[in-house]
Protein backbone atom coordinates (compact mmCIF):
# COMPACT_ATOMS: atom_id res chain seq x y z
CA UNK A 1 0.00 0.00 0.00
CA UNK A 2 2.66 2.43 1.10
CA UNK A 3 4.66 1.45 -1.94
CA UNK A 4 1.84 2.44 -4.26
CA UNK A 5 1.59 5.83 -2.59
CA UNK A 6 5.35 6.24 -2.74
CA UNK A 7 5.27 5.38 -6.43
CA UNK A 8 2.53 7.93 -6.98
CA UNK A 9 4.52 10.56 -5.11
CA UNK A 10 7.63 9.74 -7.11
CA UNK A 11 5.74 10.10 -10.38
CA UNK A 12 4.17 13.37 -9.27
CA UNK A 13 7.53 14.82 -8.25
CA UNK A 14 9.03 13.66 -11.53
CA UNK A 15 6.16 15.26 -13.44
CA UNK A 16 6.57 18.63 -11.76
CA UNK A 17 10.33 18.43 -12.09
CA UNK A 18 9.93 17.89 -15.83
CA UNK A 19 7.57 20.84 -16.19
CA UNK A 20 9.89 23.02 -14.14
CA UNK A 21 12.93 22.04 -16.20
CA UNK A 22 11.04 22.55 -19.45
CA UNK A 23 9.92 25.99 -18.34
CA UNK A 24 13.45 26.94 -17.33
CA UNK A 25 14.83 25.82 -20.67
CA UNK A 26 12.12 27.69 -22.51
CA UNK A 27 12.60 30.89 -20.52
CA UNK A 28 16.38 30.91 -20.68
CA UNK A 29 16.33 30.26 -24.41
CA UNK A 30 13.84 32.94 -25.40
CA UNK A 31 14.68 35.63 -22.86
CA UNK A 32 17.87 37.54 -23.13
CA UNK A 33 19.65 39.93 -25.38
CA UNK A 34 18.65 39.09 -28.95
CA UNK A 35 21.38 39.33 -31.58
CA UNK A 36 19.21 40.58 -34.37
CA UNK A 37 21.34 39.81 -37.41
CA UNK A 38 22.46 36.31 -36.45
CA UNK A 39 19.14 35.49 -34.81
CA UNK A 40 17.28 36.36 -38.00
CA UNK A 41 19.60 34.22 -40.09
CA UNK A 42 19.13 31.22 -37.82
CA UNK A 43 15.38 31.78 -37.70
CA UNK A 44 15.08 31.81 -41.50
CA UNK A 45 17.00 28.55 -41.70
CA UNK A 46 14.69 26.92 -39.18
CA UNK A 47 11.57 28.38 -40.78
CA UNK A 48 12.68 26.62 -43.94
CA UNK A 49 13.25 23.30 -42.17
CA UNK A 50 10.15 23.44 -40.00
CA UNK A 51 7.66 25.39 -42.11
CA UNK A 52 8.47 25.16 -45.79
CA UNK A 53 9.32 21.48 -45.71
CA UNK A 54 6.01 20.75 -43.93
CA UNK A 55 4.05 22.40 -46.74
CA UNK A 56 3.65 19.34 -49.02
CA UNK A 57 2.06 17.16 -46.32
CA UNK A 58 -0.13 20.01 -45.10
CA UNK A 59 -1.40 20.84 -48.59
CA UNK A 60 -2.00 17.19 -49.58
CA UNK A 61 -3.85 16.43 -46.35
CA UNK A 62 -5.81 19.65 -46.67
CA UNK A 63 -7.11 18.76 -50.11
CA UNK A 64 -8.12 15.28 -49.01
CA UNK A 65 -9.74 16.37 -45.75
CA UNK A 66 -11.75 19.00 -47.62
CA UNK A 67 -12.82 16.46 -50.23
CA UNK A 68 -13.92 13.95 -47.61
CA UNK A 69 -15.85 16.64 -45.74
CA UNK A 70 -17.60 17.59 -48.95
CA UNK A 71 -18.48 14.00 -49.76
CA UNK A 72 -19.62 13.00 -46.27
CA UNK A 73 -21.49 16.24 -45.69
CA UNK A 74 -23.26 15.92 -49.01
CA UNK A 75 -24.47 12.35 -48.49
CA UNK A 76 -25.97 13.31 -45.11
CA UNK A 77 -27.36 16.72 -46.02
CA UNK A 78 -28.92 15.62 -49.29
CA UNK A 79 -31.33 13.42 -47.34
CA UNK A 80 -32.86 16.54 -45.81
CA UNK A 81 -32.68 18.44 -49.06
CA UNK A 82 -30.22 20.78 -47.39
CA UNK A 83 -27.15 20.13 -49.56
CA UNK A 84 -26.91 23.90 -50.08
CA UNK A 85 -25.63 24.15 -46.51
CA UNK A 86 -22.53 22.14 -47.43
CA UNK A 87 -20.43 25.32 -47.71
CA UNK A 88 -21.07 26.35 -44.17
CA UNK A 89 -20.53 22.81 -42.87
CA UNK A 90 -17.14 22.59 -44.58
CA UNK A 91 -15.98 26.07 -43.65
CA UNK A 92 -17.09 26.01 -40.02
CA UNK A 93 -15.65 22.60 -39.22
CA UNK A 94 -12.40 23.56 -40.94
CA UNK A 95 -11.68 26.97 -39.49
CA UNK A 96 -12.91 26.11 -36.00
CA UNK A 97 -11.56 22.61 -35.49
CA UNK A 98 -9.98 20.63 -38.27
CA UNK A 99 -7.57 23.27 -39.57
CA UNK A 100 -5.87 23.96 -36.23
CA UNK A 101 -6.10 20.40 -34.88
CA UNK A 102 -5.14 18.30 -37.90
CA UNK A 103 -2.58 20.92 -38.84
CA UNK A 104 -1.01 20.63 -35.39
CA UNK A 105 -1.11 16.82 -35.37
CA UNK A 106 0.60 16.65 -38.75
CA UNK A 107 3.05 19.29 -37.62
CA UNK A 108 3.90 17.28 -34.49
CA UNK A 109 4.52 14.20 -36.62
CA UNK A 110 6.44 15.92 -39.38
CA UNK A 111 8.33 18.76 -37.70
CA UNK A 112 8.14 18.06 -33.96
CA UNK A 113 9.71 14.63 -34.24
CA UNK A 114 12.43 15.99 -36.52
CA UNK A 115 13.25 18.75 -34.03
CA UNK A 116 13.53 16.26 -31.18
CA UNK A 117 15.70 13.85 -33.18
CA UNK A 118 17.97 16.64 -34.39
CA UNK A 119 18.53 18.15 -30.97
CA UNK A 120 18.84 14.70 -29.39
CA UNK A 121 21.52 13.71 -31.90
CA UNK A 122 23.38 16.97 -31.29
CA UNK A 123 23.37 16.07 -27.62
CA UNK A 124 24.45 12.47 -28.24
CA UNK A 125 27.35 13.57 -30.42
CA UNK A 126 28.29 16.18 -27.80
CA UNK A 127 27.82 19.10 -30.17
CA UNK A 128 25.88 20.97 -27.51
CA UNK A 129 28.74 20.53 -25.03
CA UNK A 130 31.13 21.63 -27.76
CA UNK A 131 29.22 24.84 -28.26
CA UNK A 132 29.25 25.48 -24.54
CA UNK A 133 33.01 25.00 -24.47
CA UNK A 134 33.33 27.63 -27.18
CA UNK A 135 31.37 30.00 -24.96
CA UNK A 136 28.20 29.83 -27.06
CA UNK A 137 24.98 29.22 -25.19
CA UNK A 138 23.34 26.23 -26.90
CA UNK A 139 19.94 27.27 -25.60
CA UNK A 140 20.14 30.56 -27.45
CA UNK A 141 21.93 29.26 -30.51
CA UNK A 142 20.14 25.93 -31.05
CA UNK A 143 16.90 25.87 -29.06
CA UNK A 144 15.61 29.43 -29.42
CA UNK A 145 15.50 29.66 -33.25
CA UNK A 146 13.86 26.23 -33.47
CA UNK A 147 11.28 27.20 -30.90
CA UNK A 148 10.39 30.46 -32.63
CA UNK A 149 10.30 28.83 -36.04
CA UNK A 150 7.74 26.28 -34.84
CA UNK A 151 5.77 28.96 -33.06
CA UNK A 152 5.51 31.09 -36.21
CA UNK A 153 5.06 28.24 -38.68
CA UNK A 154 2.09 26.39 -37.25
CA UNK A 155 -0.46 29.24 -37.48
CA UNK A 156 0.60 29.85 -41.09
CA UNK A 157 0.42 26.13 -41.88
CA UNK A 158 -3.03 25.84 -40.29
CA UNK A 159 -4.30 28.78 -42.32
CA UNK A 160 -2.93 27.26 -45.50
CA UNK A 161 -4.50 23.93 -44.54
CA UNK A 162 -7.94 25.49 -44.04
CA UNK A 163 -7.79 27.53 -47.23
CA UNK A 164 -6.69 24.56 -49.34
CA UNK A 165 -9.29 22.31 -47.73
CA UNK A 166 -12.11 24.74 -48.50
CA UNK A 167 -11.15 24.46 -52.16
CA UNK A 168 -10.95 20.68 -51.81
CA UNK A 169 -14.51 20.69 -50.51
CA UNK A 170 -15.53 23.07 -53.28
CA UNK A 171 -14.09 20.69 -55.86
CA UNK A 172 -16.17 17.76 -54.60
CA UNK A 173 -19.36 19.61 -53.72
CA UNK A 174 -19.64 22.02 -56.63
CA UNK A 175 -17.66 20.52 -59.50
CA UNK A 176 -18.53 16.92 -58.86
CA UNK A 177 -21.82 16.74 -56.93
CA UNK A 178 -23.36 19.81 -58.58
CA UNK A 179 -24.21 21.87 -55.53
CA UNK A 180 -24.98 25.41 -56.64
CA UNK A 181 -21.82 27.54 -56.79
CA UNK A 182 -23.46 30.70 -55.46
CA UNK A 183 -25.25 28.92 -52.60
CA UNK A 184 -21.99 27.26 -51.59
CA UNK A 185 -20.17 30.56 -51.05
CA UNK A 186 -23.08 32.69 -49.83
CA UNK A 187 -24.17 30.17 -47.18
CA UNK A 188 -20.57 29.96 -46.08
CA UNK A 189 -20.18 33.72 -45.86
CA UNK A 190 -23.42 34.26 -43.98
CA UNK A 191 -22.54 31.73 -41.29
CA UNK A 192 -18.77 32.18 -40.80
CA UNK A 193 -17.75 35.16 -38.74
CA UNK A 194 -14.24 36.56 -39.05
CA UNK A 195 -13.69 37.27 -35.36
CA UNK A 196 -15.72 34.44 -33.86
CA UNK A 197 -14.55 31.65 -36.10
CA UNK A 198 -11.41 32.48 -38.06
CA UNK A 199 -9.53 34.48 -35.43
CA UNK A 200 -10.41 31.95 -32.73
CA UNK A 201 -9.06 29.23 -35.01
CA UNK A 202 -5.85 31.20 -35.42
CA UNK A 203 -5.57 31.64 -31.65
CA UNK A 204 -5.97 27.88 -31.28
CA UNK A 205 -3.16 27.18 -33.71
CA UNK A 206 -0.90 29.70 -31.97
CA UNK A 207 -1.46 27.86 -28.68
CA UNK A 208 -0.84 24.50 -30.36
CA UNK A 209 2.30 25.82 -32.05
CA UNK A 210 3.65 26.94 -28.71
CA UNK A 211 2.87 23.63 -26.99
CA UNK A 212 4.13 21.34 -29.76
CA UNK A 213 7.45 23.10 -30.28
CA UNK A 214 7.99 23.43 -26.57
CA UNK A 215 7.48 19.70 -26.07
CA UNK A 216 9.66 18.89 -29.09
CA UNK A 217 12.66 21.00 -28.11
CA UNK A 218 12.45 19.94 -24.47
CA UNK A 219 12.27 16.24 -25.30
CA UNK A 220 15.27 16.64 -27.57
CA UNK A 221 17.24 18.62 -25.04
CA UNK A 222 16.43 16.30 -22.13
CA UNK A 223 16.78 13.05 -24.07
CA UNK A 224 19.12 10.31 -22.93
CA UNK A 225 22.08 10.73 -25.30
CA UNK A 226 22.03 7.25 -26.81
CA UNK A 227 20.47 6.02 -30.03
CA UNK A 228 17.80 4.30 -27.97
CA UNK A 229 17.17 7.41 -25.89
CA UNK A 230 16.68 9.53 -29.00
CA UNK A 231 14.18 7.00 -30.29
CA UNK A 232 12.21 7.17 -27.06
CA UNK A 233 12.35 10.95 -27.00
CA UNK A 234 11.02 11.18 -30.56
CA UNK A 235 8.16 8.83 -29.75
CA UNK A 236 7.37 10.79 -26.61
CA UNK A 237 7.30 14.04 -28.57
CA UNK A 238 4.66 12.72 -30.96
CA UNK A 239 2.59 11.03 -28.24
CA UNK A 240 2.66 13.91 -25.76
CA UNK A 241 2.10 16.51 -28.46
CA UNK A 242 -0.93 14.69 -29.81
CA UNK A 243 -2.45 14.28 -26.35
CA UNK A 244 -1.76 17.88 -25.39
CA UNK A 245 -3.19 19.16 -28.70
CA UNK A 246 -6.45 17.25 -28.27
CA UNK A 247 -6.75 18.12 -24.58
CA UNK A 248 -6.01 21.79 -25.12
CA UNK A 249 -8.41 21.81 -28.05
CA UNK A 250 -11.24 20.71 -25.81
CA UNK A 251 -10.47 23.39 -23.24
CA UNK A 252 -10.11 26.11 -25.87
CA UNK A 253 -13.30 25.05 -27.64
CA UNK A 254 -15.20 25.08 -24.36
CA UNK A 255 -13.97 28.59 -23.63
CA UNK A 256 -14.42 29.96 -27.16
CA UNK A 257 -17.60 28.32 -28.42
CA UNK A 258 -19.08 26.50 -25.43
CA UNK A 259 -20.68 29.57 -23.91
CA UNK A 260 -18.39 29.41 -20.90
CA UNK A 261 -16.35 32.45 -21.86
Amino acid sequence: MLKVIQHLGHRALHFFLTIGRATLILLSSIIGRPRLKLGFKLLVEQLYAVGVLSLPIIICSGVFVGMVLGLQGYTTLVRFGAEQAIGQLIALSLVRELGPVIGALLFAGRAGSALTAEIGLMKATEQLDGLQLMGIDPLRRIIAPRFWAGFYSLPLLSLIFSAVAVYGGYMVAVEWLNVDDGAFWSNMQSSVDFHEDILNGVIKSIVFGFLVTWIAVYQGYASVPTSEGIGYATTRTVVYSSLVILGADFVLTAVMFGGLG
Binding site: V44, E45, L47, Y48, G51, V52, L55, A91, V95, S153, P155, L156, L157, L159, I160, S162, A163, V164, V166, W185, M188, Q189, S190, V192, D193, F194, D197, I198, V202
Partner: peptide, 26 residues
Protein backbone atom coordinates in the same frame (compact mmCIF):
# COMPACT_ATOMS: atom_id res chain seq x y z
CA UNK B 1 16.11 29.21 -48.64
CA UNK B 2 15.17 32.81 -47.99
CA UNK B 3 13.02 32.91 -51.11
CA UNK B 4 11.26 29.68 -50.07
CA UNK B 5 10.57 31.10 -46.60
CA UNK B 6 9.28 34.29 -48.18
CA UNK B 7 6.86 32.32 -50.33
CA UNK B 8 5.78 30.32 -47.28
CA UNK B 9 4.97 33.46 -45.29
CA UNK B 10 3.18 34.95 -48.32
CA UNK B 11 1.12 31.78 -48.74
CA UNK B 12 0.11 31.94 -45.08
CA UNK B 13 -0.97 35.56 -45.37
CA UNK B 14 -2.78 34.87 -48.64
CA UNK B 15 -4.67 32.05 -46.91
CA UNK B 16 -5.73 34.37 -44.11
CA UNK B 17 -6.94 36.93 -46.64
CA UNK B 18 -8.76 34.23 -48.59
CA UNK B 19 -10.44 32.91 -45.43
CA UNK B 20 -11.35 36.42 -44.33
CA UNK B 21 -12.92 37.63 -47.56
CA UNK B 22 -14.03 34.53 -49.41
CA UNK B 23 -15.10 32.35 -46.47
CA UNK B 24 -16.28 34.76 -43.80
CA UNK B 25 -17.46 37.46 -46.20
CA UNK B 26 -15.68 40.25 -44.38
Amino acid sequence: IEIAVGFFVLAGIASLVMLAFKVSGL
